[in-house]
Design a protein around this nucleic acid. Structure first.
Lengths: 342, 342
DNA sequence: TTTTTGTATGGAAGCGTTTTCTTTCGAAAA
DNA sequence: TTTTCGAAAGAAAACGCTTCCATACAAAAA
């Protein structure tokens, strides 16, 4: 039943060409006549041929695989990031090996030089402070390394300007009446990794507010793990501190969702006693009428993949930094017309 | 600088044997003299040799890789599960390709027959209802499939008896004074996957309580996502419902942690107004004095890996089911001597 | 002692590709 | 017309393993 997969030889035979030609078609080599290429393509289609990746690897001396090391905290973020990465890599017939940092101990194992993560052609690391854990802040590999959603002067980096995002949030919220509040996202793993994303967003927010003549007292910042329920606790906390109206900037859309849940439970009304601004720009925010700072996550992933492919192909220049900026999307939750009317 | 990795030929030469012998040593073939094996092993050590996995794959016709498909909800659980799986697979020089179900859309992609997940020698699937999503409830692959932390009559399965765990929880808590409460864990992804783990634990708890002549009203069950903060909201909820003492069974240790946090904030005292029993038996529960139903997670993962290796080696028998039972660990949070004394 | 059996080993063949080396052939240059 | 050259394509040589086959040799059986 399980008939063997067709090989390059069978394709060559059916297309009446040599295996070299088939290989050239496979690798988009220029010197193949159009007519021949089509014949080979047709043969591949009728046989249902797909090249054996392992054979490629041993023959080519490369693995055609890229390791992606990433924490798995905000799953939706990483889902979208991978989307962008995969999109680019798939075009070049590269595969992805995923190394989720499920725990610090697993992380250490990945970083041992012998580890699987280094058997590949390159490393895509999505974690702010990972390098800090390493001796000399350098990944123990000869392979190219590119950081994504993280920055280091030492490696190519594609990163988000989180501080700017916070400032944009401030600029948008500052002119509303009422006090300013913020929810900072902080995971346990963040401390290990010295991940400062959540912090930067809030710092930017505070800076922006100061520029607008407003302030953000320490007590108006609620630090929470990354969970919907954290948003609920945050709103409870704020309500104990001050009277409405509240202007709340959350370090992530998910937390804003929790705030919305609690708003409902408390019988408040968004746009009246509460203005709420998220961060991420996840698709579902549209349906919830949540204003948010949309991150071009997929593009950031794609760019990181491009940087890495460059390096794999031998590019030697000094580290390149690609900065990305969030975009403000205004929806019901911060609609100007819904001016405070209590 | 980056000198080529040594090959099997260099090892053979240094050890003064043929490459066949080196390969045999590599694969634990029995017919190698002890003395020869040691010589080869020594040569490998001095050269720092490690076999090229790609070459192995193309020569052997196998990939020596196993796909592990898993949701990434309770990271600690999966971290430990992988630990167990890897331990066994590593012994046989098998590698793991991880496919975290970050989102339903990615899940679908994995399940396409052509997908990477099927390029490997076998599939280890850790997800209750994944099969339900598939046409015919069958994974579209010729490769062996083993379920872990999930059960299907169709495939080899290594699974936890969650209902029993709930019953054990009831048996332990029932004799304490005060009403019974429970926190059920439920993720959005669970619904997609028809994952009933959280539900089973609570159902078992209810059954056990009934057997002991106690009851668990619907209103005493708080359904929460998997987060620490969910535990805090749950306790708030319970405190609105009833007076102490509370006996709380949480579907996961993490939620119990949240309960503990809120207990402190509310100025309650564990062992007096509150008895608390978790589920998972994660290492950190010891330090927190949290009683819990410890799951043999690593063993379950290891057994699943063994079942899969069996199949990969050609075992053809009908599906095997391996049931695992949690163990009750009693600590301060449900200590008998701390009898309610209000 | 001679034959048989079995174990340990070396070496060649083969896995499915990529890549290099030729060879062929037609068109441009002489 | 002859020579030169480049493009297209076939054939062969890697790539680093596993596996099979043949051989050598020692121990067991005759």
């Amino acid at each position: 039943m399980a008939k063997r997969k067709p090989t390059i030889h069978e394709v060559a035979h059916l297309a009446r060409v040599g295996i070299g030609t088939v290989s050239r078609v496979l690798n988009n080599h220029p010197s193949v006549r159009h007519e021949t290429r089509n014949r080979v393509l047709a043969a591949m289609a009728t046989l249902g041929y797909s090249p054996n990746p392992h054979a490629r690897r041993v023959a080519g001396g490369k693995s055609y695989t890229v390791s992606v090391v990433l924490p798995v905290a905000s799953t939706e973020f990483y889902s979208r990031l991978l989307e962008g990465i995969e999109h680019i890599l798939a075009e070049e017939r590269y595969e992805i090996a995923l190394f989720p940092i499920l725990s610090p101990s697993r992380l250490e194992r990945y970083l041992e030089s012998r580890s699987l993560a280094y058997q590949t052609d390159g490393l895509l690391v999505s974690s702010q402070g990972l390098a800090h854990l390493l001796p000399d802040q350098k990944f123990p590999t000869e392979r190219p390394v590119v950081l994504v959603d993280a920055y280091s002067p030492r490696y190519d980096s594609a990163f988000m300007d989180n501080r700017l995002g916070g400032q944009m949030a401030a600029q948008h919220l500052a002119h509303f009446p009422g006090a300013m509040f913020a929810i900072q996202v902080q995971e346990e793993l963040d401390e290990v990794l010295k991940n400062t994303v959540g912090q930067e967003r809030i710092e930017g927010f505070r800076e922006g507010l100061q520029k607008a003549g407003k302030s953000l007292p320490k007590s108006h910042v609620f630090v929470s793990r990354f969970s919907v329920e954290g948003g609920r606790l945050a709103l409870q906390h704020f309500m104990r501190q001050a009277k409405p109206p509240y202007n709340i900037f959350t370090g992530a859309d998910l937390l804003a969702l929790g705030v919305l849940e609690e708003v409902e439970r408390q019988g408040l009304e968004v746009g009246k006693q509460i203005r709420l601004l998220g961060f991420d720009g996840h698709p579902w925010t549209a349906a919830r009428g949540l204003s948010t700072l949309a991150q071009p996550i997929e593009e950031m992933g794609a760019e990181a993949a491009r940087l890495l492919l460059d390096r794999i192909r031998g590019y030697k220049g000094s580290p390149r930094a690609r900065r990305f900026e969030p975009t403000l999307i205004v929806r019901r939750s911060t609609q100007p017309q819904g001016v405070y009317a209590d």
